[in-house]
Computed example of a mutant assay.
Amino acid sequence: MLNKKKSASCHGLTIIEALLTLAIISILSGIALVYINSDSFRLNSEARNLRSALSQARMLAVKTNQSATVKIWTGKYEDSSGVVVDLQAQGLTLAFSGGGSLPDGGYTLRFSPSGTTPNSHYHLSNQSGETISIRMNSVGRIWLERN
C-alpha cells in the first residue's frame, strides 16, 4: 500500500496574524489623528487656504478683466466670492509683516485686471508660536514661507 502524503498548504490568516495587523493599523491611525488635530496642521491648512483664496482672486481679476479683492482682518478674511473664514475660532491670528495688527476695518487687498497687486507680507500664527508668512510680489506671485 502506498502512503500518500497530504499537502500541507495553508490558506488564510491565523488569528494571531489578524490581531497583529489590527494592532498596527490602530497605532498608525492614532498617530495620524494626533497630527490632524494639532495646531501645526491647522496652521498649515489655513495658510494654504488663504494662499488659494488670494490666487483665486488674482485669476478672477485676469479672467473678468476687472479688479478683484480679498478683505483681511486680524482674525478673519473674506475671499473674492464673499465667503468669510474665521481664523480666531481655530486659534490663529493674521498680522502685517511689521508685526502690527490689521486696522479695525480690515485691509482690502486689490488685484488689478492684469493680476498685479502691491507687494504684501502677512504672518499667520497659531497659539503655539509657529508662524507662516504669506508673501505676494508686485506681479501677483503668492508663496508661503515657514518662519
Rank of each mutant, 00 (worst) to 15 (best):
N3P: 12
N3W: 12
K5D: 07
A8Q: 15
T14F: 02
I15P: 09
E17G: 04
A18N: 11
L22S: 07
I24T: 10
I24R: 06
I25L: 08
I27T: 10
A32Y: 06
A32K: 03
L33N: 03
V34K: 14
N37D: 12
N37G: 15
A47D: 01
N49E: 13
L50M: 04
S52I: 08
A53M: 00
A53H: 00
L54V: 01
R58F: 00
L60I: 11
A61F: 00
V62Q: 07
V62P: 05
Q66W: 04
Q66S: 10
S67K: 07
A68T: 03
V70G: 01
V70R: 02
I72T: 01
W73N: 05
T74W: 03
G75H: 11
G75R: 08
K76R: 10
E78C: 09
D79H: 00
D86Y: 04
D86R: 06
D86T: 07
Q88F: 11
G91R: 01
T93E: 13
F96K: 04
F96V: 06
S97W: 09
G99T: 03
G100D: 15
S101K: 15
L102A: 02
P103C: 07
D104M: 13
G105F: 05
T108K: 06
R110G: 11
S112G: 10
S112R: 14
P113T: 03
S114H: 11
G115F: 00
T116G: 14
P118K: 03
S120C: 13
Y122W: 05
Y122K: 03
Y122V: 02
S125H: 02
S125G: 05
Q127T: 12
Q127A: 12
G129T: 05
S133V: 06
I134E: 03
R135M: 07
N137C: 01
S138R: 08
S138P: 07
V139N: 14
G140L: 02
I142G: 00
